[in-house]
Write a protein that binds this DNA or RNA. Structure first.
Lengths: 151, 151
DNA sequence: ATGAATGCAAATAGTTTGCACCTAA
DNA sequence: TTAGGTGCAAACTATTTGCATTCAT
């Protein structure tokens, strides 16, 4: 089962469970969404409208919320003032590194940090719900980074 | 030297260095700002206008940016859609825990997490610039938490 | 048939900006 | 005197919402 198939299955299940309707737009948006990695609404809307002109921005916003509720998307906010969404892989978690020069987004996973984090929450008497951990830096990669001046 | 005095000194220095002007508003906003802990612009504006009616919102926004540039404030974003600012204490760093029920903000410092974080950045070939680490949870404190139902 | 989903446009919320007036230096 | 600062209102950006229309069931 491909990630897209898995996501589609989860979405169908969620839609049925909530007594919602299966629509052309929801499938189209899902397909475009699953092709991306950390897409902004703007980017996604552009992609969708390429194949399905006439799709409204409001629908994309509403559908992304639906994806989050269905557990197939995570909302991210990297401080550029717009939300980004990424496909959620079941039982998988990672945080992000962002190059402030070129905008490249890397992912990382640090069990030790996660552990410490739980301890911190506990020490403060909080029941951990979620977290957000982003590292910002510059990627020092002339070739890869679009903002590095080419000689 | 109190924190306020220290901040004022740094601000004056910055203002002089940049050839800017010392104004009544900047001092008033600084004083109100240093009284708070993680104030939103809205809250700060209200405080300032209590003592200095007529102060404009734009001035508060502009002044907070100035504070950040002068190194006496940090901008924070806890996902409630508005920026918050907190006094920067020199050579001190902490991250945050936020109670999603009552909004209480706790601070924490975990050298081990910081260390791992640097290693992660390095492993990905990034020069670490900054980071953001927030833990969200619920504080389980009937008495302290305004959103807990009183019996 | 009928209620939910869509698309558009208008509304919102936080923040920024243009500009005439004011004020520190 | 005069550049920089302030206050107001208008502009902006991302997102949400109201509503008439369309579509899945």
């Amino acid at each position: 089962m491909t990630p897209l198939e898995a996501a589609r299955a989860r979405l169908e299940r969620h839609i049925d469970a909530q007594g919602m309707k299966h629509t052309r737009q929801r499938v189209q948006i899902l397909e475009a969404f699953m092709r991306g990695r950390h897409v902004s609404v703007e980017e996604l809307l552009r992609d969708v409208q390429n194949e399905a002109p006439g799709t409204g921005a409001a629908t994309v916003y509403r559908t992304l919320k639906l994806f989050v509720e269905a557990g197939i998307a995570h909302e991210r906010n990297f401080g550029d003032g717009q939300a980004r969404y990424e496909p959620a892989v079941e039982d998988e978690h990672h945080d992000h590194l962002i190059c402030t020069d070129c905008g490249t987004i890397f992912e990382f996973e640090e069990p030790e940090i996660e552990t410490r984090q739980s301890q911190v929450a506990e020490a403060h008497g909080l029941s951990l719900r979620s977290h957000r951990h982003e590292i910002y830096g510059t990627c020092n990669r002339r070739e890869a980074c679009p903002r590095w001046p080419r000689s």
